[in-house]
């Protein structure tokens, strides 16, 4: 999912206002339909996943999670998230910093580029890497040397026997691409709203660029940054489309957690698939809890700022 337009921590208004309240009938009707829909198609299916996961007993559940292929999938998912989240954190802060604090030509082009991974279908995101690095690809492993476009790069890849597609590097690359905008999207509106005056004051008082960044900018954006990291991590661990195109789905080697769920499902091992799915769903619920905590903290620190 792409929460492209989820602004960080909106000012909440008290919900009840007496001057303009509608009749209870209209009130219930308006919200009711949407809530019934969400309850039926979201809550009921999610609960049934947990029920199905334990349908063959706790021993089977533990057996599924303890399977070597499942372990390798969990480790690969953690590895991909562990590489892509810190990298995108750095990219995101840098991109937001440049957009909010500098003026330059082509700013709108850069903004569009940052959003691009949101708008491109994940399957196409995976496909572009297959086209470039795949066996028949542009920089492919077995490409005919006669027609090499970048002979030095190609021979370097061949000499070192580096596999990108159907291997771990491709999965990491696809994950980085897909989760690229999350941190930047959270920080850009926040940093734009905060303006440049505090940084300018720090510079006038003699702070260096790095000092300004660490002592002024980072404390201002820390909750927004954490929120972006949480979203980025959720997507990195759950990504299916792009990763499935580049992974090759070799069990125990290039299957991530979401791909492992699909593999178990294809084997008609439904209880196993739902056991793995319940693990991912549990991680998502933890993420949701973290998000609530971050928003709570952010609201608290805003209140403190206002009192001072």
């Amino acid at each position: 999912m792409t929460p492209a337009a989820t602004p960080f921590q909106l000012p909440q208004r008290l919900p009840q206002r007496h001057a303009t309240t509608e009749s209870p009938f209209v009130r219930r009707g308006l919200i009711g339909i949407a809530l019934v829909f969400l309850g039926l198609f979201l809550v009921v299916p999610l609960v049934s996943v947990f029920v199905q996961a334990f349908s063959k007993g706790i021993a089977f559940y533990i057996h599924t999670l303890g399977d070597p292929n499942a372990w390798s999938a969990i480790k690969l998912t953690l590895l991909a998230a562990g590489i892509s989240v810190p990298l995108n954190c750095v990219f995101g802060v840098a991109a937001a910093w440049v957009i909010a604090k500098f003026d330059f030509r082509g700013k709108n082009v850069l903004l569009t580029l940052i959003d691009l991974p949101f708008s491109v279908s994940p399957v196409i995101s995976g496909m572009i890497y297959v086209l470039v690095f795949g066996a028949q690809g542009w920089l492919g492993h077995y490409r005919d040397a006669e027609h090499a476009w970048f002979p030095w790069l190609q021979s370097w890849i061949n000499d070192h026997n580096i596999k990108i597609i159907f291997a771990v590097p491709g999965i990491v690359l696809a994950t980085i691409f897909v989760t690229f905008p999350f941190v930047a999207r959270e920080l850009i509106p926040l940093m734009q709203a905060q303006g440049r005056s505090e940084e300018e004051a720090a510079r006038v008082l003699g702070a260096s660029g790095w000092q300004t960044f660490w002592r002024v900018t980072v404390p201002n954006i820390k909750w927004g940054l954490l929120y972006g990291v949480i979203l980025c991590n959720a997507r990195a661990m759950g990504e299916f489309g792009a990763v499935s195109v580049v992974s090759g789905k070799i069990r125990g080697e290039t299957n991530t957690l979401p791909l492992h769920i699909e593999a178990l499902y294809d084997d008609y091992n439904f209880a196993g698939a739902f056991a793995m799915a319940s693990l991912l769903a549990f991680l998502a619920l933890v993420t949701l809890g973290l998000k609530t905590w971050v928003e709570h903290k952010n609201a608290a620190s805003n209140d403190k700022g206002e009192k001072l």
Partner: peptide, 26 residues
């Protein structure tokens, strides 16, 4: 209201594959 507020964010955080398998099961 608070609970529905949280439920609203579930599809944002739950991985697509979980949503997809749970819908299929349903």
């Amino acid at each position: 209201r608070k609970i529905f507020d949280r439920v609203l964010y579930v599809p944002v955080f739950v991985p697509d594959i979980v949503l997809a398998t749970s819908l299929l099961l349903f």
